[in-house]
Amino acid sequence: DVDLPPRVSLANSSGADLFVSVHANALSMARPDVNGIETFYFEGAGASARRLAAALQQQMLAISPGSPDRGVRTGRFFVIRRTVMPSALVEMGFLTGAIDSRRLADASFRRRMALALSAGVLNALRESQ
C-alpha cells in the first residue's frame, strides 16, 4: 500500500542492485480470452534493465506452460523509469483471463512464480558480473 514516489524513494535509498515490481494484469471480465505473461523495462535504463526483464520473463514462462508469451517490452511506468538501479515490472498474468485467473488463484502456482522470479533475479545478477 505504498504510493509510487515513496516506493521509488525506498528502492533508491536501499542500496539494492536490482528492483522488480510484481503485478497481475486485468481487463474487462468480458475478455477471458486475453491471457499471458509480460515484462517491462525502461528503455533509457540500458542493457542491464533489458537483461533483467528477459531473465524474469524466461523464468516465469518456464513454470507456466501454455501461458501466452506477451514478451519483454519497453515501458514508461513510474517505478521503472525513476529507479536508479536496473528495474523491471512483471505482469504475471491476467486476473480476468480464463487461463491465468485459475493459475493465479492457486497458492502453489504463486509460490512457483515467486521462485521463478527469484531465479530470474539471480540469473540477471550472474550475467552482470
Rank of each mutant, 00 (worst) to 15 (best):
D1G: 15
P5T: 00
L10C: 10
L10K: 11
L10A: 15
V22M: 03
H23D: 00
N25L: 06
N35T: 02
N35D: 00
G36T: 04
G36I: 01
T39P: 04
T39R: 02
F40Y: 15
Y41I: 11
F42S: 11
F42D: 11
E43N: 13
A45Q: 13
S48N: 14
A49W: 04
A49S: 15
A53W: 00
A54T: 10
Q57V: 00
Q59E: 10
L61E: 05
I63E: 01
P65H: 07
G66Y: 01
S67P: 05
D69A: 03
R73P: 05
T74Y: 05
R76I: 09
F78Y: 15
F78M: 06
R82M: 14
T83F: 08
T83L: 02
V84D: 14
P86D: 02
V90P: 01
L95C: 08
L95G: 02
T96P: 01
G97L: 01
I99F: 10
S101D: 04
R102Y: 02
R103D: 09
L104M: 12
A105E: 11
S108W: 08
R110N: 09
M113F: 03
A116D: 02
S118K: 08
A119N: 12
V121C: 15
L122E: 11
A124C: 12
A124P: 04
R126A: 13
R126V: 11
R126L: 12
Q129D: 13
